[in-house]
């Protein structure tokens, strides 16, 4: 992919980190405010997509990012299944909220048991997955060849 003009590049450099931070905020507050793992994950992916659109990339780095993001995506999936299994092992029900039996406290970040970790797992999976999709669509020539 080719890079874009310096205007886009500088603004992307300024904003990408903040976009990432905001995505993480949405992921972390999924149980308190609207949003959650998916919405936040999309923002996180957008931060990376913004950077690679603005600066462009060569095949070599694309391939590396693709490998890395697909591994991270798988890790996110495994993490999510593990969290669901934790409930299964601890209290007999898949997806049972194993950490707490209460209903959570409004406006407290660390509450609601496994909802927060599950949101984080989804955020990782969606973020890495969308970025991988972007790379696969933008650079399918080598990705599909494997």
């Amino acid at each position: 992919m080719r890079g874009m003009s310096p205007v886009v590049q500088v603004i992307a450099r300024l904003l990408a980190g903040l976009l990432f931070l905001f995505g993480t905020y949405i992921v972390m507050h999924g149980h308190l405010t609207p949003g959650g793992g998916f919405a936040g994950g999309v923002l996180v992916a957008a931060a990376f997509i913004l950077m690679s659109l603005a600066f462009g990339s060569v095949e070599h780095t694309e391939r590396n990012s693709y490998t890395l993001s697909s591994v991270v995506e798988s890790l996110g999936g495994v993490l999510f299944v593990c969290l669901a299994l934790a409930g299964y092992v601890a209290v007999a029900y898949f997806f049972q909220n194993a950490a707490t039996y209460g209903t959570g406290t409004p406006l407290k970040l660390i509450s609601g048991g496994m909802i927060l970790p599950a949101n984080i797992a989804i955020g990782i999976k969606v973020g890495a997955g969308l970025f991988a999709v972007f790379l696969a669509l933008g650079a399918s020539r080598f990705v599909m060849k494997d």
Binding site: R13, A16, G17, L21, T24, M28, L107
Partner: peptide, 30 residues
């Protein structure tokens, strides 16, 4: 500014997230 509170949980998590952000994107600061 986003969370608009100074609960210690939010502050600690915010520090962690900011650290992560800085680690990934810090070198791009123009």
């Amino acid at each position: 500014v986003l969370v608009y509170t100074l609960q210690y949980q939010e502050v600690i998590v915010g520090a962690g997230v900011a650290l992560l952000t800085a680690a990934i994107f810090g070198r791009h600061l123009p």
